[in-house]
Each structure stands twice: as structure tokens, then as C-alpha cells.
Simulated scan of single mutants.
Amino acid sequence: MIHNIIRDKPTRLFIFLGGFFITNAILAEIIGVKIFSLEDTLGFSKASFTLLGQSGLSFDLTVGILPWPVVFIMTDIINEYYGVKGVRFLSVLTAVLIAFVFVVFYIAIHTVPAEWWRVSQEAKGVPDMQAAFTQVVGQGMNIIFASLTAFMIGQLTDARVFRGIKRLTGEKRIWMRATLSTLVSQLIDTVVVSYIYLYFSMGFSFPRVTAIALVGYSYKFTVAILCTPLIYWIHDAIERYLGHEQAAGMKKAALEMQMNR
């Protein structure tokens, strides 16, 4: 039986898309502790602007946003061929796995380090490996809660907006349902994680949090627009893999399931 499952192209495609979806979501959570300068990375002059009365703002962003557009692209692709139920299943599974990862991190942090390992990288500028390990993987529970909450709300919003647009357009205007659903869901994701973590947890002022959220979203907005051609390329690749007839049947079934909800 397992051989039949593996040979089934729609099943293999779902496993591949789901695996890519989950991997990028977990990666984004783990590496998100680092803040990088977009301008310095691209070799541009450092921006310094004022927004909502907050001066000195620049594009200092969490590196977690780098793989995050992939998650939203995968959301739209999965929605296209497997419907809202497919997206919901993977979203819940991903949230559970992210929580599991941080539980394991918590246990790993609280094991007693070997003394030789703790000082093993002192010559390379890391005097305490245990402290470094704790800082990198030991993100606070507040940011984890904020991130998971934003992830679930954003994913379900993406699926619903995508479904609503597809109800109106049918198979036409892939760019519209993919791009608009991503723009809306990333806006909600940015707002939720920013206010839960920065406003309620860190105590930042409302104008400052709003300004930071707008700066972050402007980057996500730009990336979502630039990724639109990639959506079409992925659709074409899937059509070639499945065959036009099978791909059309899957999209029709997904649309009918959404229409009947």
C-alpha cells in the first residue's frame, strides 16, 4: 500500500509542498532572533526617516522574514489544488511542530554544559558557548506566543481571502488571488506579532510599534509583488508534473469544496 501512496502524484506533491511549507515556517521562527540591516546588506546608504513622530527609523528587519514569503506562496499553491482544508491541516500541524521545537530547545538549554565545550570557542570571540546558545535558541515565550498567534491568524486569513477571490474569478486571475491574499494576510501577521510582542510585552509606545510594523510590512509588500511571477512559474511546473487533466480536476474539486462551504 505504501508504494501506491508514494507513486500517487497528488500525494507526493502534497508531501513536497507541505514539507517545504513546514520547513520554511520553522526556519523563520528559529532564525528570527537575528536583526539585520537591509540597506547595509544591499550596499545602500542607511535610511533614516521619521514616521508617526518616530525618528531614526531604518530597514532593520528580522531575518525571519527572508523565508516567510515562501510560506505564503506555498499557502496559495496548496489552497489552489487542495483547498482550505489542506491549508488548515498544514497550518495546525506546523504550529504544533514549532511549539515542539521550542520545547526541545528549552530542554536543551537547561541541560548542564560540559565545561570544555562552554569555553571551546573563546579564541574565536565567544567566551561562553552556553550563553550564546541560550541567546540564539532561547527566545522568550512572549515572542513565541506572538509569532504562533500571528502565524495561525495570518494563515487562516490568507486561505479565506484566497477562497473568496477564487469564488468570484474562478480559474482566472491567479495573480489577483495569490497576491492580494498574501498582502492581506501578511499585513495581519505583521500587526498581530508587532502589537502582542512589542506593545503588550515589551511596552513600546503605540506610535513606535505602528511605525515599526509599517516599515516591516513595506518590505513584505514589496517582496509579495515581486514574487508574483514565481506563482505562475510554480503553477506551470505543477501542471507539467500532474498533467493538465489531473491538475484541472484537482483545482475543480478544491473550488467546489470551497463553494459548498
Rank of each mutant, 00 (worst) to 15 (best):
T182L: 08
G43K: 10
G53R: 10
K34S: 12
F105I: 05
A211M: 00
I15W: 05
M202L: 14
G216H: 02
L187C: 07
T62R: 13
K34E: 12
V71S: 12
A211T: 02
V112A: 13
K166F: 12
A95C: 12
V223C: 01
L168I: 10
F204C: 02
D128C: 11
G64K: 08
G164P: 00
I15C: 09
N260G: 01
V101I: 12
G18Q: 05
A224L: 08
N4E: 11
Y219N: 10
F200V: 03
F89K: 14
A159Y: 05
L57E: 06
A247S: 15
S181F: 01
V92T: 12
Q186W: 04
T41E: 10
I143W: 03
G56M: 11
N24S: 14
L242K: 09
E239G: 00
V33Y: 12
R163C: 12
V191G: 04
F59C: 07
L42K: 02
Y217V: 01
K166S: 12
G83N: 11
T190R: 04
D8A: 05
I231G: 02
S194D: 07
T182R: 09
A237I: 07
L42S: 02
M152P: 01
N260M: 04
C227S: 10
V137M: 07
A159K: 05
E239L: 09
I98G: 07
R173E: 06
M257N: 15
Y106S: 11
I143Y: 03
S120M: 01
G138L: 13
L52Y: 14
V84K: 15
G19H: 11
I15S: 09
L214W: 02
A131Y: 05
Y197S: 07
A254Q: 08
G216V: 01
F162A: 08
A95H: 08
R7C: 09
V191F: 15
D236F: 08
Y219E: 03
G243S: 07
